[in-house]
Design a protein around this nucleic acid. Structure first.
Lengths: 204, 204
DNA sequence: TGTACATCAGTGAACGCGCGTTCACTGATGTAC
DNA sequence: TGTACATCAGTGAACGCGCGTTCACTGATGTAC
């Protein structure tokens, strides 16, 4: 950790990491640019050498999050090929795993209120992540009996909604809101029942 | 609207309503006590005649939300009795309808970060709302073939997660995030597929 | 190897702002007689 | 019906605070010769 000297060396990334910790600890609105600077051992003004301002810093945290997220899901998807079902389920698990392992990123991405159209880089990263889930849904969709096959995008929207709901309601350490079941189990069983409803799984 | 004179008449409720509008417009963190006071035509200090402070005002908004929410779901539940299935589906629709009609309340309830254990009144209201959903799930659960019957609380958690996910991801007018389908349809079909997976619906 | 100099990442002081909260006060309301 | 008075909802000034942002600056780094 070579933080000595007048020049920081890698202030930009240090600020992103400080921001992530603060966002995780205090929520997207509790985060302040000044405190992130302080935690990086630097004057608030120094931030402006690397970012346009507060929002820009959050957007960069979100961008990095989308990239990690997409990589993770891509990896899960690839690993379970050529089984469309196994690959699909793996991306679902990857979703939750990401949210739990990187709450700061997750919040910056989905709860900070910054638009993913804010910059082309952010939009690209977000789009890539979404595309992987949709691809997995599309693959799996081919296995659904044609008479009950919903559009793949609807299908993936359902899964996304349930995943996000589980994260928000049951995988946050919100005091007072105790989870009745481990979030992983909840999501796994929920997706399982849903897939059975589509005729993709026969029995229990 | 008798807002004339030195005494306001019903400042307490006027403040709650101003807060709801601000929360809806600016998010839970963008809301400020001072601005709510201003919109109610009153000095910030006047707020302290009716609330302990900023948080207390948000908590009251959430409390009123939970009561409305519970009433709405109760009504939906009762209306479709004695069909457990119809009653259950109606409560799901009521969930989304509430979120769309009362975004300020919804945000205060689920996104403001205030604990529902903050006060007994708030906890009661929140509990009542939750209980209705669980009751509907329990009823319906009796109709599930025993060999594939999950605990009713898991069942209701799944539905809650999907509902919340749909609200957060597709029923907010977040710029840039266009919904592929109307949220109502998305939730209706999602719950339908899920229920089919449980053996509660036979065909399409 | 040593010196001069351009670059530029960070400083630190300052700004104006709106926030939540407190306080002594004032004046409208409503009740007792 | 009229007057005296208690109540208490609202005022307005003040507070200390941390915020995001700007600016002229400084001093470390690294390159040219």
């Amino acid at each position: 950790m070579p933080k000595r000297g007048y020049h920081h060396g890698n202030l930009r990334q240090a600020l992103v990491e400080a921001a992530l910790k603060l966002i995780e600890a205090k929520g997207p609105t509790g985060f302040t640019l000044s405190e992130a600077a302080k935690q990086a051992g630097v004057t608030p003004a120094a931030v402006y050498r690397h970012f346009e301002g507060r929002e820009d810093l959050i957007a960069e945290a979100a961008r990095q999050g989308f990239i990690m997220f997409a990589d993770l899901m891509q990896h899960a998807y690839d690993k379970y090929q050529p089984s469309a079902l196994a690959a699909f389920e793996a991306t679902g698990r990857a979703y939750l795993a990401f949210a739990r392992k990187n709450p700061g990123h997750y919040i910056a991405m989905f709860e900070s209120g910054i638009s993913s159209n804010r910059s082309p880089e952010l939009a690209n990263a977000a789009h890539r992540a979404r595309a992987i889930l949709e691809r997995a849904a599309e693959d799996l969709s081919q296995h659904i009996p044609a008479d009950r096959r919903p559009p793949a995008s609807m299908f993936s929207a359902h899964i996304l909604a349930m995943s996000h709901g589980v994260v928000e309601l049951y995988a946050r350490n919100t005091p007072g809101a105790t989870s009745p079941f481990p979030p992983e189990d909840l999501l796994e069983t929920g997706i399982g029942i849903y897939l059975r409803g589509l005729g993709l799984i026969d029995q229990d």
